[in-house]
Nucleic acid binder design. Structure first.
Length: 678
RNA sequence: GGCGAGGUAGCUCAGCUGGUUAGAGCGCGUGAUUCAUAAUCACGAGGUCGGCGGUUCAAGCCCGCCUCUCGCUACCA
């Protein structure tokens, strides 16, 4: 590793439209906190930066739905998030937010600097505009009929019924969410960051100079760079965000992807007047802890921004994690499929470390992982309680029983096994360090546990409870060694299990230790008085786990019944409207998959009128050979459209259920092709 | 379809630039033990390293094809 004088650690800014869940923790905050604590214990100069990301359209929408201001929304979640992080022991040096004054100033200045250097390009385009509300409409602010599934409540960026992502221009009968009026297209000007111009630099910087990055990170970057970068808009028409600090940009704010990472800088500024030292001195090491959804922003876009600005360091590493699933399903804020941190802290009071341990030991470092309550329970009961807590307790209790809590002096008889056991402490410490230095937290925490295992084995092999009957001197040595292992453990576990480490240190009457003390075999001097033992970890009972599982099951049931709700009926139409559609019974004569697509089948259909080609997006549900001969409903007078180079003449009518599964609508008995459906 | 990341014991994962009988933790079985929150310690069973082919004296590791999972992306009239 290069020699850096200090380290600046940033953690992905959680979006302030919901609380923190275990996915955030396992992917970002637990590893970042462990790393920060580790460096601090080594006496290094390190800052751990966090904050809430509070701009962007989803927040304005949520505010609108609830009839409150965006500021109300972000205040609510910022406070929940901040408190839960604090209670969970994430040791932020600062936890700020992107609605702070400092941030507005920092972000505008940042934009202005690049602007003045000519680092942006300007471009005009057509966007939907609400004449009544006199504002441009973000995609999320437009609803209409989904061109795919016909759902009336589709949003301009995505149809929540069929899940397709859309462009606002695709919507049929677009309507403004704000006023209910029909929006018009209007020209608007925006500024773009020409990522393509930074591409050569990024290619060299990542693909050649940072081959040591994690394979998932490196691969993702390579994928993006190989596809070629395009200019990306840094501004948008919205009244929630950091206003563009230039003339002629009224009603325009910084796009949230642009302002959010600058939040790291703003937060540092709020923390210390020496912030520039942490951001601009090349002897500072910059690290971004993020989840995999953020790789492109932190490896491509933010570095391009920093480079365009010109005076900042670029990240030295971006240890991104994959995703954590929950009981086999994707975690989802909107579907309430999550273990919320603030709820966990309520349900498992005083057991912060149990969750920290479980999430770290099962962190999604190389691939997506699954969190199950059963695994959580078994890690707590079989590892924290049975191995770590138990060893500590055994040592403490024996010391109390035999010596009233006074550390014995090492006896005169010292065996090789004692020396070997003590020597192994240092070996284990080294391994933990190596793992932490390379961001392998799962490996590190596992190695930390081997120190407790070593302790248990030492006791089992030396059997002081037997020896006490025959050789009291020998027992002094045994407990001396056990106590030194315990003391080392209390230091080694601190980055991972800070609450329990403090508790143990208090029990041992040990304070003022740091990482360099690890490996010492005289941490507790002979005669040193230790306190009455308490249990370090509590067992988690089956009923507590069952309670959590029931809670999740309730969510699942609620989601399913929500999915069952039927789409509301569309507006009335006249018989003439209906009559315009010419629906016939046709027979599929042949079917084949359209090359290079996942969903498309090319069908030859005998409509009775003629034989024609129809392209249909049903390949995920039917094999071509299985549907030949099937009678189908076909809309024959739909204007032809070319898809993937094939002219599609008509549309096969399908029924779609809430799971998006498609089924044919067949006549109940064979009928002549060309028969009219009405 | 393209790109990226994965597919190693029941579960969660290690396996460095290819080199002798493929490892760990949990779970399971047997034994030992009682200081300890029935915790601990030892031993053991269990793997065609996703599949097929190839390169090599030698492949979990390299190459080709296929397959499954996750993500990004194109396609859905």
């Amino acid at each position: 590793m290069e020699n850096f004088k200090r380290t600046l650690i940033t953690t992905a800014l959680p979006y302030a439209n919901g609380p923190i869940h275990i996915g955030h923790l396992a992917g970002v905050y637990v590893p970042a906190d462990i790393y920060a604590r580790y460096l601090r214990m080594k006496g290094e100069d390190v800052l751990l930066i966090g904050g809430s990301d509070e701009h962007g359209v989803p927040i304005t929408l949520k505010a609108k739905n609830e009839g409150v201001t965006p500021q109300d929304i972000v205040d609510r979640y910022h406070n929940i998030i901040k408190k839960s992080f604090q209670d969970f022991g994430v040791s932020f040096d600062v936890y700020s937010r992107t609605t702070s004054e400092t941030h507005y100033k920092t972000a505008s200045d940042f934009f202005k600097t690049i602007y003045d250097k000519g680092g942006f390009i300007e471009n005009e385009s057509d966007q939907f505009y609400d004449e009544e509300a006199k504002q441009f409409l973000a995609d999320r602010y437009i609803t209409g009929t989904c061109p795919h599934c016909g759902n009336d409540g589709a949003y301009g960026d995505q149809c929540e019924s069929c899940g397709t992502s859309l462009n606002a221009n695709d919507l049929i009968n677009p309507i403004s969410v704000i006023s209910g009026s029909v929006p018009t297209l209007k020209k608007t000007k925006h500024w773009y960051l020409p990522l393509d111009k930074h591409e050569p630099f990024l290619k060299k910087w990542i693909l050649e100079d940072h081959k040591e990055w994690k394979s998932n990170v490196y691969g993702q970057c390579k994928s993006w760079l190989d596809q070629g970068l395009q200019a990306r808009a840094v501004s948008r028409d919205l009244d929630w965000g950091v206003p563009l600090p230039i003339n002629g940009a009224d009603g325009k704010v910084l796009y949230v992807w642009f302002d959010a990472p600058i939040g790291y800088i703003s937060a540092t500024k709020e923390l210390t007047p020496e912030w520039e030292k942490y951001w601009k001195d090349p002897e500072t090491r910059l690290l971004h802890f993020i989840g995999k959804d953020n790789i492109v922003f932190h490896c491509i876009m933010f570095p391009a921004m920093l480079k365009a600005e010109g005076s900042f360091n670029l990240p030295d590493n971006v240890p991104a994690n994959e995703f954590l699933n929950l009981e086999g399903d994707k975690i989802s804020t909107s579907r309430n499929w999550a273990v919320w941190l603030h709820e966990y802290l309520e349900d498992f009071k005083g057991q912060e470390d149990s969750l920290r341990y479980s999430l770290c030991a099962n962190a999604p470092e190389t691939k997506d992982n699954d969190f199950t309550w059963k695994d959580f329970q078994s890690r707590n009961n079989n590892e924290l309680v049975a191995i770590l807590g138990n060893f500590v307790n055994r040592t403490m209790v024996l010391t109390q029983n035999y010596y009233k809590g006074k550390t014995p002096a090492m006896g005169t008889v010292v065996e090789d096994f004692d020396r070997e056991s003590l020597a192994q402490i240092g070996e284990i410490v080294k391994k933990v360090q190596t793992s932490l230095d390379s961001f392998r937290f799962r490996e590190a925490v596992k190695e930390m546990m081997t120190l407790a295992r070593l302790g248990n084995k030492y006791l089992a092999d030396t059997e002081p409870w037997k020896v006490i009957k025959t050789d009291e001197e020998r027992v002094k040595t045994i407990l001396f060694v056990s106590l030194q292992i315990t003391a080392n453990l209390s230091i080694l576990m601190e980055p991972f299990l800070p609450f329990s480490a403090l508790k143990l240190q208090a029990m041992l009457n040990l304070s003022g230790t740091n990482w360099d003390d690890l490996g010492r075999t005289d941490l507790l001097a002979p005669g040193h008085q230790i306190n009455e033992p308490e249990l370090l970890f509590a067992k988690i009972e089956d009923k507590e786990i069952q309670y959590q599982l029931d809670k999740l099951q309730a969510t699942k049931t609620a989601n399913q019944s929500a999915a069952k709700t039927v789409e509301p009926a569309k507006e009335n139409i006249t018989f003439d409207d209906f009559n315009k559609m010419d629906i016939r019974i046709g027979t599929i004569k042949s079917a084949e998959k359209v090359a290079k697509t996942k969903k498309l089948l090319k069908l030859e259909v005998d409509t009775g009128i003629d034989k024609r080609t129809v392209v249909s997006g049903i390949a995920e549900f039917f094999n071509p050979e299985d549907i030949v001969g099937k009678q189908v409903n076909i809309l024959v007078n739909l204007a032809p459209r070319t898809i993937k180079g094939i002219e599609s003449q008509g549309m096969i009518l399908m029924a779609q259920n809430a799971n998006d599964e498609l089924v044919f609508i067949e006549p109940s008995k064979k009928i002549k092709p060309g028969s009219v459906v009405r």
